[in-house]
Design a protein around this nucleic acid. Structure first.
Lengths: 240, 240
DNA sequence: GCGTTCGTTGACTTCGAAATCAGCGAACGG
DNA sequence: CCGTTCGCTGATTTCGAAGTCAACGAACGC
């Protein structure tokens, strides 16, 4: 038994490689035509393999989408968790997560596009395991926010779960501006966007003033930052 | 000519009514099964009309989706613009828009769900006129942010377009938590969420400190709100 | 009332993509 | 060098949903 394993393993590796090739092709095609809008034939052609082979590696179209999702999401989650374990204080963590997301986009725009546009939303993606994955991430992040609150690093009256949702919403929308071509995909623009997402979110969440309740009324003009260092604000208008 | 118009008009009204019925049914079915995942037969059955009638009022499935999108989006846009024209100062405007969005969800969760999940994203929706509509709204909002910056009501170093995207991203994600059932759909929860979205965003955007450039590094602990009036912040916790 | 229009019907046709499968041939064992 | 396995092929089958259309009948004008 053991003696004939060596070649078998080599073969297994080649198969795994094939599988990855198809997966990559699927990402490529999905990003161009969308999951529903593309044919298995497209994926096969893109991968340079026969139509039937796709079905050799994946039970059906849904499983293919599921695998695309899983492999992409897995990678992202791993990086996020790594980033989280490297940092301890709240602000650094937030910046790290944002950084990871934008970096992922810079490295693999197509993959991120598919994750955001195809599986991130839409009931078709929901059929896979999107629902749980999405929820899981929110819950995970919610834990971090709750912890930050306990340590006094974050305003305590905010709902952690909702805050987590808003956080990822900001990241996602920040990336979406690039995905749909609203912003030019250039490294410096990406960096500025990344920083703005992180800074804006942090500002919004870090120690907001007291209850505020349903304060849809007057804005206290004696807000701290007005009396502090507002000397330069008159020169604010930059963009028509 | 004029004499025979009265009955004709009555008939025309009935037709418009039929059309609306089908449109409503489409929203209902789309929200349950998704655009791609549902059959015209489903829409017809839901509307209580014959299969062929759907094709009498709409050229094809795409046009049906387009109409659903347009009618929904039109209503939303109109309310947003009304809200904007009623308010002049920046903070009130932001709160108004958030309010409008959440109110729309409270009144018609299904419709909002379809807008968010089906047409708001996905290349299939993009085939319609989503692309332009989405972009248009961002551009519109960007104008408001630019104006706010000119008036000194908003931090000047933020990119208006990106800010607009983040704004709608926050709203959308805030609503998504309810759409996917992450948050319980109850009026008081909705209200709290709405306020948190508005407050968090405003805090994040209103007069952030100077350039900050690529400040992904240290957080200056002499941030204005720390040294100013932080005396009451310990009593902030209200809920659990 | 009587003919005509036209909204309405739903069985039928069409079409295209998913999924199948019988067989080929390269890689391997002996 | 021959036999066998099994990864791989792509024409073929299957299936289901989009879109058509001929006919019906209710509402209308005369």
């Amino acid at each position: 038994m053991a003696t004939k394993r060596a070649p078998k393993l080599a073969r297994a590796e080649r198969e795994a490689e094939r599988r990855k090739t198809i997966l990559r092709a699927a990402v490529e095609v999905f990003s161009r035509k969308g999951f529903q809008g593309c044919r298995i034939a497209d994926v096969a052609r893109e991968a340079g393999v026969a139509y039937g082979l796709v079905y050799h590696y994946f039970k059906d179209k849904d499983e293919l989408l599921g695998s695309v999702f899983e492999s992409g999401w897995q990678g992202f989650l791993a990086r996020v968790q790594a980033a989280l374990s490297e940092q301890t204080d709240f602000e650094s963590r937030i910046r790290s997560v944002v950084h990871v997301a934008f970096e992922a986009y810079r490295r693999d725009p197509r993959g991120v596009k598919v994750l955001i546009l195809e599986v991130g939303r839409s009931p078709s993606g929901g059929a896979v395991n999107r629902g749980s994955a999405f929820t899981d991430v929110i819950e995970l992040a919610a834990g971090i926010f709750a912890e930050a609150q306990a340590r006094g690093e974050m305003a305590s009256h905010l709902d952690p779960k909702l805050t987590a949702a808003l956080f990822f919403g900001s990241i996602e929308m920040g990336l979406t501006t690039f995905v749909v071509g609203l912003m030019e995909r250039r490294d410096d623009v990406l960096e500025r966007a990344r920083d703005q997402v992180a800074e804006t979110f942090l500002r919004g969440v870090t120690h907001a003033r007291a209850p505020a309740a349903s304060a849809a009324e007057a804005l206290p003009s004696e807000a701290p930052w007005n009396s502090a260092k507002s000397g330069t604000r008159s020169r604010a208008a930059r963009r028509d």
